[in-house]
Simulated assay, not measured.
Amino acid sequence: MSRTFRRKNQQHDYEWVLIDWKSRIPGVRSPRHDPRSVLGRKAIAHYHSDSQMTMSSTAPRWYRKVYDHRLRTRNNRQMSKWFRDPEFDPVFEVSHRHDANYSWW
């Protein structure tokens, strides 16, 4: 399913996107870019690009690899304990596609 189809009816609130973060002064209302200006269109384009981390994005690849390796190691240890002692009752942790993402956020 393409991203365009998934986000077909999605509404965006650009309040935080259009803030001019470089000229922001603490305690003073921050200036905003006009959404039709060059800087405003650039900020909106960066917001919609995949070059930034958001809450809906996945964990970094390096973190997912480490997380999956730990899970595989735990399960392999349970299996080896069971091989050594058939009376041992192994408890395996089931891998889920989003486990690393849940622990990342």
Rank of each mutant, 00 (worst) to 15 (best):
M1C: 11
M1P: 08
S2R: 12
S2L: 15
R3Q: 03
R7K: 05
K8Q: 14
Q10F: 09
Q11S: 14
Q11N: 15
H12K: 14
D13S: 12
Y14K: 03
W16H: 14
L18Q: 01
L18G: 02
I19N: 00
I19D: 01
I19K: 07
D20Q: 03
D20L: 02
R24W: 10
R24P: 05
I25S: 04
I25H: 02
P26I: 06
P26K: 10
P26V: 05
P26M: 07
P26S: 08
R32G: 04
D34V: 06
D34K: 06
P35C: 04
R36Q: 13
R36M: 14
S37W: 05
V38A: 12
L39P: 02
G40D: 01
K42M: 01
K42F: 00
I44K: 00
A45K: 02
Y47H: 13
D50P: 03
S51V: 09
S51G: 12
M53W: 09
T58A: 13
A59Y: 09
A59H: 15
A59W: 09
P60T: 12
R61P: 10
R61C: 10
R64N: 13
V66E: 13
Y67R: 03
D68G: 15
H69F: 08
L71M: 09
L71V: 11
R72S: 05
R72C: 08
R74T: 09
N75P: 06
N76W: 00
N76M: 04
R77I: 15
R77T: 08
R77S: 03
Q78C: 02
Q78F: 06
M79I: 08
S80P: 05
K81H: 03
K81F: 08
K81E: 04
W82M: 02
F83W: 14
F83P: 00
F83L: 10
R84Q: 05
R84L: 08
R84N: 10
D85N: 14
D85A: 11
D85P: 07
D85H: 13
D89C: 05
P90N: 04
P90F: 01
P90W: 06
V91C: 03
F92R: 01
V94H: 11
V94P: 02
R97S: 13
N101E: 15
S103T: 12
S103N: 13
W104C: 10
W105L: 13
